[in-house]
Design a protein around this nucleic acid. Structure first.
Lengths: 190, 190
DNA sequence: ATTTCTGGCTAATGGCATTAGCTTAGCAGC
DNA sequence: GCTGCTAAGCTAATGCCATTAGCCAGAAAT
């Protein structure tokens, strides 16, 4: 019997395929083993356990997304950059719904995930540099943008919007909402 | 051996306690059985299976939340109502993080869940009645509000915001952002 | 008191994760 | 080409969980 020639990377690859096709719930060592043509216990030669495999999948998704977001804002600034950032965010979530869902909101106990999370947040912060926000204000703005983008992405990619109204239009409105909140002139005296 | 006196309702109650204390992942028939002092298979006399129990838990959470949201907006209108609605939304998610996480974004294949979801959305729509929005515009606005509130609630309740900056302040800013987007006068010509 | 119904129990099956220990493919060095 | 070592893969075994089947006794109804 020839060897299967697995590597940690190829195992993660197979795991990603399982996630994409059947969702995070279905990510099981047995499923990955079946897909790679190997017996389940053999996988332990390449990953510590299922939890670690999950983390590696999440890491990949976060890295991918950080790259996508970064590319989206390159060469743009201010409102234009914010809009493209949010569109790219949404696009990723819609194109890879299960992968997006595999991203943990909080990278608990894992420095690699934490770093990846920082890379994603970093893109938002970079875009906001175009506005005149002092330290704390930038944090608040980042959180607002993130909440809006993440909320919409989650809801859309998991089928939370059922009505026939055009989602593109809603999303453009959401972008406008965020952009307006970044432009002080938009805030009327109160 | 005296009977345990379980009912479908008391089983769901126990399940809710498990979810609250250990999260949705930990919701297992074995855990509920242990907590109710009964052998696992006995539970099948009261619920069809684990999936159904999960649905009942979700239903309870959604119903609770619909009530909480409804109460929050009673006697208020427009910006005030929107703000209180969002605060109540956030409060529920923070006070019952696991329960909130148990709410499915999309109530797949279940009319009861669907109805509960409609009740929640109904509160938003009711509040937006205070603004002059025609049919589609109300839908878009509802989605934006929901995305913002849900995004923030999810991120906060799962520990997604790590920096020390005050979250209350961020949230008030998010509210302002949503409210401003509902008031056309706030949008400056561009 | 007797019958019936039903909640709870034990036993059994099957899926999955994980560990232990064996086997051998494939390479390094001779 | 032979010798040996390392690591990839395998089988067997354990344990947890969901689910089903079938038994038994407590409670309620007659």
């Amino acid at each position: 019997m020839p060897r299967a020639g697995l590597t940690p990377a190829s195992v993660v690859e197979a795991a990603l395929r399982v996630v994409d096709e059947q969702g995070g719930e279905a990510l099981t060592l047995a499923a990955v083993a079946a897909r790679t043509g190997v017996a389940t216990p053999s996988l332990y030669k390449h990953v510590r356990n299922l939890a670690e495999l999950r983390e590696r999948v999440a890491l990949r998704a976060m890295d991918e997304m950080a790259v996508v977001l970064g590319e989206a804002v390159m060469g743009r600034s201010r409102d234009e950059a914010v809009a493209e950032l949010m569109r790219a965010w949404r696009r990723y979530a819609v194109e890879h719904p299960h992968r997006y869902a595999a991203i943990p909101p909080s990278p608990l106990h894992n420095s690699e995930l934490e770093a990846a999370g920082r890379r994603m947040i970093g893109v938002i912060l970079a875009v906001l540099r175009g506005y005149d926000l002092d330290g704390p204000a930038a944090i608040h703005a980042t959180r607002c943008l993130r909440a809006a983008a993440h909320g919409f992405a989650t809801l859309e990619s998991s089928g939370g919007f059922r009505l026939p109204e055009d989602l593109d239009e809603t999303f453009e409105q959401l972008i406008a909402m965020v952009v307006a909140s970044l432009t002080p002139s938009a805030t009327p005296p109160r």
